[in-house]
Design a binder for these strands. Structure first.
Length: 276
DNA sequence: GTTAATGATTGTGC
DNA sequence: GCACAATCATTAAC
């Protein structure tokens, strides 16, 4: 009996590609299985495949700290999560089927053996229990690798979000309008930065970065930016002129933190290159 | 594939 | 802590 059982185990091992440990080996504790189950449920991988899939994926994405509204990479994330879910369910189904087939197979073997020796119901029960425990350990491995796949996907998704993205055209226009209308003093205050950030749907530090880059690049190549400057000057001809005048007036009278009193068109630099 | 543009990061000086 | 400068890394246009 044992050699037959072993050979079938080997067969299952070959079919599933998973390692099957010895029958004497202790199975993993249930709490671990429950943790994996909870994690897969939270990610929307486990549970019913039909229906709530995308909703669960969206919930998972939200849990990962991302907005649930738009973006290509977000739909990418959902698509990949859905792929993982599909693989998980296919494999799970495969294992359940294999478990049932194997149980039937063993039962048949026992039935055959009962012709030559007495087999107690307890022995049958024990055998079935061993098989089921074995298969739940295989399921556990499946759940573990699915969890790993989800974690990798999540970390990649979060990394992707850190990648550079060009600002929207509208955002760039708003920033450029401010820059060129405050060319004499292109150093927005903290409040102005917050206002711009809100208008452009970006962070305050992104506004700071943008102005930092813009000042440097403008200063390095005023000629190149002249056209752009004229464009924005014409665009905001009336209002910008007033705003710029007010800004200049402001910077001349009460601007203790403004490093540039001369303005950018003819910048004055300190010995270290910083704008005065 | 190359190149320019651009957002982010890092190092430095004040 | 802020601004500048150099540089990196990615995007977009060609």
């Amino acid at each position: 009996m044992k050699p037959a059982l072993f050979s079938v185990l080997c067969e299952i091992k070959e079919k599933t590609g998973l390692s099957i440990r010895g029958a004497q080996e202790e199975d993993p504790p249930d709490p671990q299985l429950m943790r994996l189950d909870n994690m897969l449920l939270a990610e929307g991988v486990a549970g019913p495949e039909k229906g709530g899939g995308s909703a669960a994926a969206a919930a998972a994405a939200a849990a990962a700290g991302s907005p649930t509204d738009n973006s290509i990479e977000h739909s990418d994330y959902r698509a990949k999560l859905s792929q993982i879910r599909q693989i998980y369910h296919t494999e799970l189904e495969k294992y359940e089927q294999a478990c049932n087939e194997f149980t039937t197979h063993v039962m048949n073997l026992l039935r055959e053996q009962s012709r030559t020796r007495p087999i107690s119901p307890k022995e049958i029960e024990r055998m079935v229990s061993i098989i089921h425990r074995k298969f739940s350990s295989i399921q556990m491995q499946l759940k573990q690798s699915t969890c790993e796949a989800v974690m990798i996907l999540r970390s990649r998704f979060l990394d992707a979000r850190r990648k550079r993205r060009n600002f929207s055209k509208q955002a760039t226009e708003i920033l450029n309008e401010y820059f060129y209308s405050h060319l004499s003093n292109p150093y927005p205050s903290e409040e102005a930065k917050e206002e711009l950030a809100k208008k452009c749907s970006i962070t305050v530090s992104q506004v700071s970065n943008w102005f930092g880059n813009k000042r440097i690049r403008y200063k390095k190549n005023i000629g190149k930016f002249q056209e752009e400057a004229n464009l924005y000057a014409a665009k905001t001809a009336v209002t910008a002129a007033h705003a710029a005048a007010a800004a200049v007036q402001n910077s001349q009278t009460n601007s203790p933190t403004t490093p540039n009193s001369g303005g950018y068109p003819a910048p004055c630099y300190q010995s270290d290159g910083r704008i005065q």
